[in-house]
Design a protein around this nucleic acid. Sequence first.
DNA 1: CTTAATCATTGACTTTATCAATCATGTAAG
DNA 2: CTTACATGATTGATAAAGTCAATGATTAAG
Lengths: 155, 155
Amino acid sequence: MDTTTSTAVSSIERFMASELAGDIEFLTARTRALGSARANKALENLGLKVRSYSVLSLACSGLAPTQRELAEFLSLDPSQIVPLVDQLEERGMVERQADPQDRRSKVITSTTAGRQLYKKARAATTAGEAITMANLNPDEQKTLRNLLSRIAFSD
Amino acid sequence: MDTTTSTAVSSIERFMASELAGDIEFLTARTRALGSARANKALENLGLKVRSYSVLSLACSGLAPTQRELAEFLSLDPSQIVPLVDQLEERGMVERQADPQDRRSKVITSTTAGRQLYKKARAATTAGEAITMANLNPDEQKTLRNLLSRIAFSD
DNA sequence: CTTAATCATTGACTTTATCAATCATGTAAG
DNA sequence: CTTACATGATTGATAAAGTCAATGATTAAG
C-alpha cells in the first residue's frame, strides 16, 4: 500500500510501462526538456540561455564558425542565428568578422569578455549536467555521450 | 584527400571536437531535432505529429491517463493538452470521460478508430526510429533506452 | 560575361511555450 | 455543515521559437 510519495512522481511511474516510454524520440524529448530547463535556470544569472550559450561556446572554441555553420550544428534556421549573434555582439562578447576567403560569410569570434563569460557559463552548465546525470555512474555517462553522438552526427 | 563529401557534413565534423559537442544537453537537443523531424514526416500522412501521436499512444495504452497526467508525462503545460485532445476527439480517435472518482478530471480513452490509427502510426514511427538508430546495434539501442530512461524519470 | 548558387539578413506567418484567471469540484478543519 | 483552500480543465493574453520566401552582396561555373 503506497503509491503516493509525491503527486508528481506517482502517476509518472504508471506510464513508464507504456509503449511510448520506450520510444527514443520520446525519451530524448523528455530528457532534453528536463536538461534545458535546468541549464536555462543555471545560466539565468549570466544573462544567457541554452541557445546563446551554445553560440558563445562555439565562438570561444577557436574553430571560427560562420553563421551558416552555427545554424547547421545547432539544428537551427540561419535566420535564428542572427538575433542570437546580435545580442552577444551588443554585449561585447563576440564579433562578426568578414571571412577573407569568402566575404559573404561572417566568422564569429569571441572577445576577452566573451571568454570570461563563457568560463563562468561553462561551470554553471557543467554543474547542472552533473545533477541531471546523477543517476548514472561515470562509465555510463561516457557511454551515453558516445551513443548519442553516433546518432546526433549520423547524417 | 577529401573532406568534401557533402556540404552539410563537412563543417559538422570540425565542430565535433568542440566542448559543446560533449554536452549531454546539446546531444539530446540535436538527437531530438533529428528524430522528431523524421517522426513528424513519417506521421504526416496520418494527420498526426509527434505530440498528437504521443497523446494517442497513451490514450491507447489502457492506462487511462487524465489530461493532467498527460501534461506531466509529456513535459507540457496542461493548457497545451487541451487542443491536442480536442483535435483527436473531433476526429473520433479519443474520448474525454469524466472520472467517476474525481469529476474534475477527464480520463482520455481511445476509440476503435483511434486504436486502428495508432497501429499505423506506431508502425510509421518505429520505422523512423530504426533509421535514426541505424548506427547502433541492438544491444547499444537497449543500453541507450536504459540510460535515457534513468535520466528522463529521475525526478 | 552571364547565369546560377550561397550567405546573412529581413519580414511575414505559424506553431509552441508560458502564465494568470476562471469555473467546477474536491479536501481539510473548525 | 460551511468556510477556506487546493486541484483539474479551460480560456485568453503574451512571448518565444520555428518556418519560409525574398533580397542584396558575393562567389562559382559555364
